[in-house]
Amino acid sequence: MKNNSTIKEIMEAFRQNPEKGFELIYKAYSGPVFRYLRNSFSLSREETEDILQNIFLPWVKNPQKYAQIENPGAYLFISARNAALKFKETIREDSLMTEGGDKSHDTSVETNLMIDRALCKLPHEQKEAVVLKVWINMTFEEIASLQQCSLQTVASRYRYAISKLKELIPWQK
């Protein structure tokens, strides 16, 4: 996640010039939000892009309203999480990607598929905690705020998840 001064600069730029500022916001958060959605909720690329587009769309349609937000990252991750949970509730289970089937990561495809499969075996909250902590570099406080639970719960989820992943992934080879 970005540090506070960078966030302030980005939001100030968005207030001064929404077009330029939005470009900065999109560059800063579209990738992490995309990877968070894709890996935490096991969504296909198209589904992930649809949700991503929907959560950024109000920002470009009504920039004055969103210029008052102080922490765009937190806001976007919460929006993404809510949208993904709603999507998963409505969509049929069989259309969801499972076992990382249609993923094609750029580096080390086999390893990534193996990690995906292992992540899919974890409960959703544990998987989400690992993705946010390891790949999005969120703090436990930020994850707790997003998951709406205590700091201890997040730490426990993360510890259990890492422990389980260690068993599932032959990482020392």
Binding site: P18, S30, R35, R38, S108, N112, V134
Partner: peptide, 25 residues
């Protein structure tokens, strides 16, 4: 090890293009 295998996927440029098309500005 997990960090090294961080997925590097990015959304396609079409998403940003579509957002720009819809943008108020």
């Amino acid at each position: 090890y997990m960090e090294q295998n961080c997925p590097v996927e990015e959304p396609s440029p079409e998403v940003f293009q579509h957002l720009q098309k819809e943008a108020a500005w």
